[in-house]
Design a protein around this nucleic acid. Structure first.
Lengths: 158, 158
DNA sequence: TGAAATAAGTCAACATGACTGACGTATTTT
DNA sequence: AAAATACGTCAGTCATGTTGACTTATTTCA
């Protein structure tokens, strides 16, 4: 009965989300550029780092891109020694992916930048804000993918 | 002195931000696709709609793209009658941009989708959450751009 | 065991949306 | 009258995504 609650335009949040995400991804861009990498490389590196030994097909599921698309950036990351591949112990068709020491280190530099931005923002906000923010971002995800994402983000943080 | 506060990795928020933004932009993509438009068209249409009579150069400042890049999508939007251009009354070199009725209507459909996702999320959260979320997103923006963004988002919502 | 399915890689062609650099035209400013 | 400005456009490049077809190695299954 109340149209306003579910339909009222939220231009403020729509635009804030746009600008916030742009600057959030802008930090790593600078470092990536120096190595001739782009955001695609960042995403691959990140999720391999966070899921050591991940299978190629599972990585494709997370990134929702085609294997041809992944192939290009993955090849560069392997050639440049940021990621290494190992045949699966149980199923030797698989090429399990790991970050190399170089890859792990670079990955840490990238996520440090992003974490700094996040922590800086949170530190300026009332106590408990990070939980609210986490909840909001979680609820912005498609309902049918939430559990999968929840599973993904619940990992050791090294 | 406390390294943890400012540097500790926030993989959870980094990943939640990534997935949330993807699904947030995914809603409009479906509608845009039907018209042969992409996200670039969406951004142009959105900011023209929100800033009627905006100059081309100001739009470039907001989007932070080149005029050649804008040129292509803007031409399509004008050709397809979603945006119209009018010479500036004071400075006739300017081509002030406005959404047409068709453009305004389409724009409304797009922002309705995004607003619904936002309002749905907020409605599941404690009172006052939207203010926390707004604050967080605002603080995620580069410090030196915040005032400009603040100016932008403080507009009549029709 | 032999056929089918699976995991991964590769080649080719294409689309979108960014970019740089150069140049043109109308209009305003100095 | 010359310089600066607002905008548009041509041409070429790059990054990252897409389809579709095909290969190779390995595992599964009838």
């Amino acid at each position: 009965m109340n149209k306003k609650d579910s339909d009222s335009p939220r231009f403020d949040l729509i635009e804030l989300f746009f600008f916030a995400y742009r600057d959030f991804t802008g930090d790593p861009d600078v470092l990536l550029d120096e190595l001739g990498f782009g955001r695609a490389h960042h995403r691959v590196l990140h999720f391999v780092h966070r899921n050591p030994g991940i299978r190629v097909s599972d990585l494709l599921d997370i990134l929702k891109i085609t294997k041809q698309s992944l192939g290009r950036v993955l090849k560069q990351l392997v050639d440049d020694d940021f990621i290494c591949q190992e045949p699966g112990a149980l199923d030797r068709r698989q090429r399990l992916l790991y970050t190399t020491e170089k890859g792990t280190e670079f990955c840490a530099r990238l996520s440090k930048l992003q974490s700094q931005r996040i922590n800086k923002a949170i530190s300026m906000m009332p106590d408990g804000s990070d939980e609210i923010v986490r909840q909001f971002l979680y609820l912005m995800i498609d309902e049918n993918e939430r559990s999968e994402v929840a599973r993904l983000i619940t990992k050791q943080t090294d």
